[in-house]
């Protein structure tokens, strides 16, 4: 069973990355903080008696579910708004909101690589990571940021290891291409 100190240490170590991951997904600081807060509450309330070693995977799953719940709520809300606003919209009500994230990103003017400081490069990388399709981004971040192996990533995402490899490969290529187009070489 995780002690209070172990849980505190775990949450302190993971909260920034969790916030960033939520930000990549929802692109709103307030909502991202809400999602992380909900995830923290849930893991403490429902899984606080689990061994400390199990916490990372559980938290990852909770965070993903909280993010997906946010999109579901947003989708329902937007559906009602669309119904009552009587404004024409091209949105498909049956579309998965996670799949539309890529197109929702803003497009900043490109600049040459020499003009960017390290901080700006990091911001651009984050921006491009946020533009990845949701499943690709999840797989990439779990695999390369959370340092999960393929099997753990598959468990966390609820898919096969083959799917994880495919998502990671596509994310890597898409990210490399986008960064190259923006003049960033790693």
């Amino acid at each position: 069973m995780a002690t209070r100190e172990e849980l505190s240490e775990f949450l302190a170590g993971v909260e920034r990355r969790a916030f960033k991951q939520a930000m990549f997904a929802v692109r709103d600081e307030s909502h991202a903080l809400d999602i992380v807060q909900d995830a923290m509450m849930k893991i403490a309330e429902k899984y606080g008696d689990r061994p400390a070693a199990e916490l990372p995977l559980i938290f990852t799953r909770i965070l993903q579910n909280a993010t997906h719940d946010y999109f579901r709520r947003t989708k329902v809300r937007s559906t009602w708004v669309t119904l009552f606003s009587a404004l024409g919209s091209d949105d498909d009500p049956d579309a998965d909101p996670l799949e539309t994230l890529e197109a929702a990103g803003d497009t900043r003017a490109e600049s040459s690589e020499a003009a960017y400081s390290r901080e700006q490069i990091v911001a651009l990388i984050e921006e491009e990571v946020a533009k990845l399709p949701a499943r690709q981004r999840e797989a990439f971040l779990l695999r390369y940021w959370e340092d999960y192996d393929t099997a753990e990533t598959a468990v966390a995402m609820g898919c096969s290891e083959g799917s994880v490899k495919t998502h990671c490969s596509r994310a890597t290529h898409a990210l490399a291409k986008a960064l190259k187009e923006r003049g960033i070489s790693l």
Partner: peptide, 30 residues
């Protein structure tokens, strides 16, 4: 790069994360 970005969170955000963590710890299931 992502780690660098995560370390550069502003004070307001880190404070709220800390509050969220404390709130969660207060409700830890034993």
């Amino acid at each position: 790069a992502l780690n660098e970005g995560a370390e550069r969170l502003d004070y307001k955000t880190t404070l709220r994360l800390e509050k969220a963590r404390m709130g969660a710890l207060a409700r830890q299931r034993h």
